[in-house]
Nucleic acid binder design. Structure first.
Lengths: 156, 156
DNA sequence: GGCAAGCTACTCGGATACACGGTGTCCGAGTGCATGGGG
DNA sequence: CCCCATGCACTCGGACACCGTGTATCCGAGTAGCTTGCC
């Protein structure tokens, strides 16, 4: 999995604390990561419609929906792409004992098992929203944590 | 995910139909894949203890346990490695608002969510055994399918 | 005919090149705000 | 004092190199079975 997913998720969480747009450079400074590369991830979120980008002097990124309406799966698929990790090569149709294509209307057992696991993974990610993550941040580090982040983002 | 996982799974399934060792070259010929690269995957299975390799003229690979005792997860971890796809970089400890290390005894919310999803994925893969896959092959393509594979592997 | 030593051929195992996707970076296009001049 | 035109600085967006991991391959180490010579 792409490492940029972690950055994107952290950005979405901190964006829940502010309403004004936040530039990518400020988000990068907050997390101490490469501004250029983080911009790439935010562009992916923008293409997926999870964040809205506003240009100009006071521009930046803002969440487009309520944090409770954005799942972790949305962010992961936006950054890493919606393609599943496992792709069936249909090797059952190759070799000397290849099964005829007419008998291959349904996916093979291996493909089914991998697809089921992939669905379970996606289901678990879909069950967690950005609002849940933000709430957990408050629970883990105290209620002041999010407000301090908000203050830092809006200051300067 | 590594594409060789699919090859390894197919090899394990067909190995359920025979008791004698099967060389890697024959398995590669059956699936019409690169013999050299398939050998790499089989070596990974051998290191993990899922298959036993016997050398010499009538050598090859054999399953070490009952097919019902080998899960799909075993094969996936043997080929792709046991490391989870998501690794937390602990970026919460970086930047101007870094949380002190003393408050980071437990993994962060994002890490927990990803870990839960990973556990669900692994659980789904652990619930399916090679015996299940072999049974499904028989159900999908007729009871004769596995015996034909067995005949082809032992012939020649 | 039985047996043992040697040889052969076949197997696995790890070490070695190549390629593609992820990682990291940069510069150009676009836009809202600030400013200064005029009415 | 208010309005508008101009300039500007700041923003995003996509296009461009670099690197690591997976992909593909090869040759050497080792061993079981066959052959052949001898007893």
């Amino acid at each position: 999995m792409s490492g940029g997913v972690e950055w994107a998720l952290h950005c979405c969480v901190v964006l829940t604390s502010v309403e004004e747009p936040v530039p990518a450079t400020r988000l990068a400074e907050l997390h101490d990561v490469s501004p250029s590369y983080l911009a790439k991830q935010l562009q992916a979120l923008s293409r997926a419609g999870l964040v809205r980008s506003v240009q100009g002097k006071a521009g930046g990124y803002t969440l487009t929906r309520e944090p409770a309406a954005i799942t972790v799966l949305d962010v992961v698929e936006a950054v890493d792409g919606p393609a599943p990790a496992f792709v069936c090569t249909e090797i059952r149709q190759r070799g000397p004992l290849a099964t005829p294509a007419a008998s291959c209307t349904a996916p093979c057992a291996i493909s089914r098992a991998m697809h089921t696991a992939d669905a379970a993974w996606r289901g678990a990610l879909r069950a967690v929203t950005i609002a849940d993550l933000a709430r957990d941040v408050g629970a883990d580090y105290g209620p002041r944590a999010m407000s301090r982040i908000s203050d830092w983002l809006t200051a300067g």
